[in-house]
Amino acid sequence: MLRYANPTRFLQLSSALVPWLGAASAALFAIGLYLGFRVPPDYQQGETVRVMFIHVPAAWTAMMGYGLMAAASLVGLVWRHPLADTAARAAAPLGALFTALGLVTGSLWGRPMWGAWWVWDGRLTSFLLLEFLYLGYIALWNAIEDETRAARVCAILALVGAVNLPIIEFSVDWWTTLHQGESILRKGGPLISSVYLWPLFTMALAYTFLFFTLWLLRIETEILRRRARNALLAEGP
């Protein structure tokens, strides 16, 4: 693991991985979309069940993104490694985007189901708070000029957020009344019909692969930018 903490090694590994990850993601998207539009409409939800295939993966990826950001922040704080700082920073805008997509699709899913564009449902509300956490992280990073300091300070924020997120989720669940329930991961088997599981998991994998592809590309970009800056500094004004 630490072998790849060297930026040059990381670039080699990442450049080798990115085409495969990207291709796998594209293929999974194609299969997932095909499966998603082939399944019959749900007897209760009708055609809107198809929104689930993009809503749930976006939401999963958004949470995974925060987890990765917090893990990278922890590594950056403990081992003071710039690559981990870069990784944490690169995950934030992606996480914010996937959270936003989860919110928009959730709203579009909810309109026909609940009869309202926005319902203070447990999942939507915690995702709105997650989006604010991402935006606060990005704003804090942009406000601090010194890059190393920004990385460390934001790492603390990411970790505080990571500790608080389960509490937020719990409190929102506690508060809400219209909560749908985690129907996929519920004990005693999934509640949703199994015909919908294949497109759902395929799309979830496609979203996850896309997230990693973009994440690696953004880390590469940051490494190259840093090199260009260092080269400029070495040349002198």
């Binding site: 708070l129 956490l133 804090l140 406000a143 300091r149 505080v160 957020g161 608080n164 509490i167 508060w175």
Partner: peptide, 27 residues
């Protein structure tokens, strides 16, 4: 503490603190 070295940190502070305070408001 996080916004200490930022000029006009008072503007960012509510954005990063308010979502963390959601459980306090709920409970």
């Amino acid at each position: 503490g996080l916004t200490l070295s930022i000029r006009r940190g008072g503007l960012i502070l509510p954005l990063i603190v308010l979502p963390l305070l959601a459980p306090a408001v709920i409970f």
